[in-house]
Amino acid sequence: MAAATPAEYISHHIQNLTFGQHADGTWGVAHGAKEAAEMGFIALNLDTMFWSLLTGILFCYLFRVVARDASIDKPSRWQLCVEMVVEMVAGSVRDAFHGRNALIAPLALTIFVWIFLMNLMDLVPVDFIPFVSHLVGIEYMKMVPTTDVNATFGMSLSIFGLMVYYGIKVKGFGGFFGELAFHPFGKAFLPINLVLETVSMLAKPLSLSLRLFGNMFAGELVFVLIAALIPFWLQWALSVPWAIFHILVITLQAYIFMMLTIVYLGQSHESHD
């Protein structure tokens, strides 16, 4: 907010509100990227946590209301809206997942709506919330959780865990590691197979999280750049078209994340043999 140059403005806007241990041993909020980096792993991005929890709770509340009062004869408009999303997710799961697993569909719904809501924060003008938080004394406020690599990795690693868990559960230890070791070239090339399959397996959560993070971070950065470099009375000429285009991006990214999750988990339920 108080940035003098565009570069300072931009770096200020892409800095999370990180809470951790300072170099001198005291605990507190980092002032600037350097301090945040020095805090290492034992630190928490308060803004990411706050906004992701807020959007997550909002999702639970909005959908729980419908689930509780679901009417068969006289659905409210909101119920119809929720049902549309649920049907879309249920249809995607039916198409892409052929096992029997009660977790997949709710998981996909949570991913889609939660990521959509977190991405949606991107459409709030970049200075609204930081301005308010600045007034109450909070220096940094990055309010799109999906532009924080921790958030996207938090989800993709959870999904990776599920992939491994169901892979072993469905195919057994032998089946799971057999797939890693004996494909794609057969038993004679075991080390090569192992390397290839392990890389391709690890690439799944990595690509999943980096795709979402990259798209959202880039989108956010464009908004910040527009705000930083263009006079305020002309910003609408760029930020409005970009925001409209971004509506597509945030929905698409949420959908892609959901769809790939379904596909990956479907793969860990199906044997290649």
Partner: peptide, 26 residues
Amino acid sequence: MNMNLTLLGQAISFAIFVWFCMKYVW
């Protein structure tokens, strides 16, 4: 861009939301 405990926080809240959705919403 630092990896930190937010990762775990996200994973935990993700698990809770999925559980809630699976039990009370879906």
